[in-house]
């Protein structure tokens, strides 16, 4: 029989995955993304494949209002980015 070590399975604390990462985005006049700066590279947006907005948790202290863009960059990479409509900052969503 395996003995109970009476220890937590891992010593590392709980860690969030897929946290949005702050990014720089060039916008057009309608605040739509034109290009994304990623690791000091400027990636032009080739196409917007989908866009959507969420408006959540308005009853809480800090509501979540974001506009998402599912884009394909010039180098053919799909990417999901969003503009935080409260702060005006851009983020890249997850992986």
């Amino acid at each position: 029989m395996v003995q109970n070590p009476r220890e937590a399975a891992s010593s590392s604390p709980i860690r969030s995955l897929n946290l949005p990462a702050l990014i720089q985005v060039e916008e057009d006049a309608h605040q739509r993304p034109l290009a994304i700066s990623l690791r000091r590279r400027r990636l032009g947006v080739a196409s917007v494949d989908d866009l959507w907005e969420i408006d959540e948790e308005w009853w809480r202290e800090s509501p979540i209002v974001r506009r998402y863009y599912q884009v394909t960059t010039e180098d053919g990479r799909p990417m999901t980015i969003f503009r935080d409509l409260v702060s005006g900052e851009w983020y890249r969503q997850g992986g």
Partner: peptide, 8 residues
Amino acid sequence: NLVQGDTP
């Protein structure tokens, strides 16, 4: 309605 999936 700017819902995910609307454009495609």
